[in-house]
Nucleic acid binder design. Structure first.
Lengths: 186, 186
DNA sequence: TTCTGATGTAAGTAATTACTTACTTACGAG
DNA sequence: CTCGTAAGTAAGTAATTACTTACATCAGAA
C-alpha cells in the first residue's frame, strides 16, 4: 500500500468518526503513521484530501455491482433489498461522512449523492418493470418507496441508533416490505 | 423575546447552516446582536448551548401533536404521512443539525433521536392497530416500513438533494405508500 | 438618588489549526 | 559510489478559537 493510500484510508476513518471539521490533518497524518509534512506534500489541502476520500470510497461501485436475482417479483425484491442493505452497511462509514458534512460542504456532496440516487433508481427500475410488470408510473413510484424505505430503515437503525442488525431482522423488514410493494403479485 | 432566547435562535440557525464545528461562538453572538461575553454569561460553554438548542427546537412536540385522522385505514395513513412529512420539513434545519453531528456528538444526539423514534412508532402503532386491524407483529413491521419510507424519502429529497417538493409530489408518494402498506384493506 | 442587574467594550490568554520552510536521512537504480 | 526520490524532523507562522478578566454603561426598582 502506497503512502498516499495509507493517508487516504486513515482520512476516511477519521472523517467518518469525527466529521470533516472535527478531524485535524495532524490526526490523519498520525494515524497513517506519516508526518504532517508528507500529507501536505501529497495533498495540497485538507479539502482536496476530503474530495479524494469521497471519490475513492464511494458506494456507487457497490450498488452498480448488484445483479438482479432470479425468481418471482417478490423474491427478486427481497434479494435486491438485502444486497442494498448490506452494501450500505459495508460503506457505513462513508455514509457517515456524507451525513456529517451535508450542511457544510453541500456542492461536493450533492453531486456524489444524486449520482448514488440515480444509480440506485436505475437498478431498481429494471427489477420493477421486468419482474413485476407494472406501468411506468406505478413502477417509478414503487421504486422510490422501496429505495426510501431501505435507505431510511438503514439510517435510522444503524447510523442514528448505532445498532448492527442481524440478518434475521434485516430479512424480516425487507421481506415484509417486498410483499407490500409487490402487492401479492407473483 | 429574552436575550437567552435570541441567542438560542441564532445558535439554531448557525448550527443548522454550518454544523457544530463549523459555527463559532462569536458568530452566534453577533447574529443575535449580543456580545460574546453575554453569550458566555448565559451559557457556560458552546457544548451546553448546543444541548439547549437540541432541547428547545426538538421535533418531538410536532410529532406528538399529530392527531389520528378519521376515515379508512388507507386514508388515515395518507393523512398522517402528510403531517409527518410536513413536520419534518418545518424542522428541516433541526434535522440537518442532527444529521451533520451524528458522528461527532453521538451521546447528545442518540438520546434525542431515540426519543423521536419511540414517539413516532407509538403514534403510528395506534393508527395501524385500530384503523387497519392487523396482528401486533404485522402491525409492528408495517409501522417500521411506513416510518422508514417517509423518513428516507424526506431525507433523500429535501436534505441530500436540496429540493422542496410540492404538495402534489408528496401526496403522490405517500398515497402510493399508504395503498401498498394497507394492502387494499378498507 | 441610589443600588442592582443585565449588558457592553476592550483586551487578552492559551490552545489549536492549516499549512510552510529549511534542512536531514534512508534507500534503490544506474 | 552517486544521485534522485520519498520521507522525516524541527521549528515556526498567521489566523482562529473558546473562553476570561476588568471595567464601564444604563435602565428601572426602591
Amino acid at each position: 500500500m502506497t503512502t498516499k493510500e495509507r493517508i487516504l484510508e486513515s482520512a476516511y476513518n477519521c472523517f467518518s468518526r469525527k466529521g470533516y471539521f472535527g478531524t485535524t490533518t495532524r490526526e490523519i497524518a498520525h494515524t497513517a503513521g506519516v508526518s504532517e509534512v508528507t500529507l501536505f506534500r501529497l495533498f495540497k489541502s485538507k479539502k482536496e484530501l476530503f474530495r479524494e476520500v469521497l471519490i475513492n470510497f464511494s458506494i456507487i461501485p457497490d450498488i452498480r455491482a448488484i445483479s438482479v436475482p432470479e425468481g418471482s417479483g417478490e423474491l427478486a425484491l427481497l434479494g435486491i433489498g438485502r444486497k442494498i442493505y448490506l452494501s450500505l452497511r459495508e460503506k457505513k462509514e462513508f455514509l457517515k461522512i456524507l451525513l456529517s458534512e451535508v450542511t457544510g460542504l453541500t456542492e461536493e456532496i450533492e453531486e456524489v449523492y444524486s449520482h448514488f440516487v440515480r444509480t440506485l433508481e436505475e437498478l431498481l427500475s429494471n427489477v420493477f418493470s421486468s419482474a413485476l410488470s407494472l406501468s411506468p408510473d406505478e413502477s417509478r413510484m414503487k421504486v422510490k418507496i422501496f429505495g426510501a424505505a431501505v435507505f431510511g430503515f438503514f439510517i435510522s437503525e444503524e447510523i442514528f441508533q448505532g445498532r448492527e442488525l442481524s440478518q434475521r431482522e434485516i430479512d424480516e423488514f425487507i421481506s415484509t416490505l417486498s410483499r407490500s410493494i409487490s402487492g401479492g403479485k407473483p
